[in-house]
Design a protein around this nucleic acid. Structure first.
Lengths: 297, 297
DNA sequence: ACGATTCTATGAATTAAAATCATAAGTAAG
DNA sequence: CTTACTTATGATTTTAATTCATAGAATCGT
């Protein structure tokens, strides 16, 4: 069996020319290398070197092993280097799952300072899950789940990172835009634009319209926040989004956010983690950065 | 240090699911594998697996090592397989150097039955050498040298494989074509076509014209035998080639071979080898096939 | 619910392998 | 032809790997 030591020996002898020097480089004795290769030769039934004067010349078989060494040893060393970084907590992969569409805008603001601080963390964001965000966490498809519904289960922890108010967005000249707050009935003649998700998971339905068994005149779905707000700005309908997001976009678009119900709809966003991961440094750091950035909003 | 055994263990556990089964597959005890990985984990400062119920799940570091295993182990196994063939004498590389231009035609007839018998031998033919054919043999750039000049040196052996007569080739209607043999003076008004080699190494000069201090009217060089004979066939000149080669081509071209001098010029071709290689089976076989095929000519 | 089963983990004892030491034997250079 | 430098090798010591014998933890079946 060709072992790593054999590869190292053959590579070093090729590099330095003699067994003796290779032995020094490997912090072993010349005798050790000689014995090691002798044994390998016995096992494989070939000679690795032939002696030429007092030099060693690789045989064909030896050349094959050298080529193997040059291909293989760098790979071994590379993974060892990566693992050393993992051990120091400086490297890892952080795959974030999103169960909350508008949170994507928020996530973007968290990501860039995070990447700067943790250059060796592979960051990935996923938005579709075969067995839901929870299943994805359990099956290690993702490492963190951004969600408004902290479904507590054994082995998982949730940490609140972000509070916001859900408001109705309309064109600033829309008849509803002057009201101090919206009632469910007010939407009966409106076109409501939402993300393409089941209505049970849309707060505007489950926490607002359903209270009075109302429904909008029409329901349109749109994938992206940008286009959604463009539609609102051109009076094609109204939508429900986080207040801070509406505030942000209202600098550029003629839109306005209005409270939903007398007391408004307050939402809280959580990050869910596997309990085994909470002590990982680069994951804790992500939670820290996420919480700090969100307080200032 | 990640050793081959660690890679094997991690690969087998991934394939079979449990340490116990992996241990059976590797003809070791479950305890051995557990201890081995434990030690590795200590050295690298990471966990390879985390226990999930009574199953093991690879950590990020573990995934890195598994990926390494899947890339590296097949390469190790592949070279071991090749070396096993080398050990059985069934595989090797045979790089043949040619110091004799027309011999290339002869070599082609040897090569095809040889390749059939030794499918795992890498055959290569070289015709240019930085320090001559001899130097190429010594520096292991080639393994066999086809040459008409057996320059005996310590560490080398030569074996005769092929006898032929060097003849003058002319168009069949050429004035010289009716002579029973050619004298050096006969070429004084002819255009002589040869391979592009130093004249000292051309037998037509060193072993024929030089005897009477003659030289041809003109001297042209051409790389390939085919074109050379096309030229002769279109009366652009005469050349000197092996009789068997002329005989072969005269089926298709209007050419004729004539004896050079009263007694003709007889040549012998040798294959030179390093003495250390003469017992290698696939090299002996090459000599055998070469000799046998040449006797029938 | 609980015993049987099927895993992994671990400490101590055993076995095997690797490294060293001391030295021989071969080659090259002055 | 002696000196310096190389690899090879047998005996000994040191180190590492493997096993054995159990314990502990999770799952399955009744």
């Amino acid at each position: 069996m060709i072992e790593r030591t054999h590869l190292s020996i053959i590579r070093e002898v090729d590099r330095l020319g003699t067994l003796t020097e290779a032995a020094n480089a490997l912090f072993l004795t010349q005798s050790a290398l000689s014995h090691a290769i002798k044994k390998l030769e016995g096992q494989l039934g070939i000679k690795v070197w032939s002696k030429e004067g007092r030099n060693l010349r690789l045989t064909q078989a030896g050349e094959h092993i050298l080529s193997l060494a040059n291909r293989t040893l760098p790979q071994l060393e590379h993974t060892e280097h990566i693992i050393a970084q993992i051990a120091k907590g400086k490297r890892g992969s952080l795959r974030i799952g999103m169960e909350c569409h508008p949170c994507y805008q928020w996530l973007l603001t968290v990501v860039s300072p995070y990447l700067e601080q943790w250059p060796d963390v592979d960051l990935d964001v996923k938005q579709r899950f075969q067995f839901g965000g929870l299943g994805a966490l359990f099956s290690h498809d993702i490492d963190a789940l951004v969600t408004p519904d902290p479904l507590f289960k054994k082995g998982l922890t949730y940490l609140p990172v972000f509070d916001y108010e859900l408001v109705l967005v309309t064109h600033k000249d829309h008849p509803l835009a002057n009201k101090s707050f919206i009632k469910p009935q007010d939407l009966s003649n409106e076109t409501l634009i939402t993300y393409p998700v089941e209505t049970e998971r849309l707060d505007i339905f489950s926490k607002f319209l359903a209270l009075e068994q109302c429904s909008p005149h029409k329901h349109k779905v749109i994938e992206t926040t940008d286009i959604m707000l463009q539609m609102v700005a051109s009076k094609r309908g109204v939508s429900a989004l986080p207040a801070w997001l509406v505030k942000e976009y209202s600098k550029a678009l003629p839109i306005k956010g209005i409270k939903l119900g007398k007391h408004g709809i307050d939402k809280q966003i959580f990050i869910g983690l596997r309990e085994t991961d909470i002590e990982i440094e680069y994951i804790q750091s992500f939670i820290d950065i996420a919480s700090k950035l969100s307080v200032t909003k």
